[in-house]
Design a protein around this nucleic acid. Structure first.
Lengths: 129, 129
DNA sequence: CATGACGTTTACGTAAACGTCAACATGCCT
DNA sequence: AGGCATGTTGACGTTTACGTAAACGTCATG
């Protein structure tokens, strides 16, 4: 066990280019082990990539993602004093996500309306209202 | 009635700069009436701005937003033949939004976990596992 | 051993989404 | 008439998130 992956395996899995993965490393988002100069990705790296791409799909910038992952890691670690601060940040992020949930529901509803207008028009095309 | 707004009123309402609004106009996202050289925004422009910003919060690019708004408008208009096409596009967009809904739920769950770890650590700080 | 396939760094290019002047017009207040 | 707020159009600058090439190392395989 102890599955590992090459950069091209990982890029294939997530359907991104190797360039992108290296770029994320430059930006401090992931830091895979090295075997000589080659990058070796382990399961935890893969999980991290999944988190990164998820956050990206939600519109967060790479630096926001990096900061957040670092912060959550530090909370997982031992930075005792920062506990309250991390909780605050989490709540800020939660607010953004809830806002997005609402936005999505609104847009879905708009789409339903447009869809209905189209379907109606296809049934009875001569309606000029 | 027939409320109208200046560019600065609108920028204030939506908490964006006038520059941004003019830029959106350059990109064909809104086209307010002119009174002389001054831009005059009416209610429908305001609604459109709201749609634009909502889509932006969901991570869509300006050109995607422009295309989509144009498309929905055309469906509202009379481009009969494109009906089926518009319905397809709507379904593609819907798939993206549903993906985002899942992403949000996943992230919210992750945040809950981190939160719990912090709270536990604050209760009993000496646990080294 | 040479020839891919795969990996590496370095560097420059680019599209998107504005910010930031500059330089000017226009309305209205005193 | 003077002055100030508010508006306008360029034009150039900036950041983000990579793409794209150049130039080279390394390993397996015919």
């Amino acid at each position: 066990m102890a599955q590992t992956y090459t950069i091209s395996e990982l890029s294939e899995q997530f359907d991104i280019t190797a360039r992108t993965i290296r770029f994320y490393e430059d930006q401090g988002l992931i830091s895979p082990r090295r075997e000589g100069t080659r990058r070796v990705y382990e399961e935890r790296d893969r999980v991290r990539m999944k988190l990164i791409l998820r956050a990206k799909r939600l519109g967060f910038t790479l630096s926001e993602i990096r900061e957040t992952l670092d912060l959550y890691d530090s909370a997982s670690g031992g930075e005792e004093a920062q506990g309250k601060f991390v909780l605050e940040v989490i709540n800020q992020h939660r607010a953004i996500l809830l806002q997005q949930q609402n936005d999505i529901l609104d847009v879905l509803q708009d789409m339903k309306n447009v869809e209905q207008r189209i379907l109606n028009k296809m049934k009875s095309p001569e309606q000029k209202v």
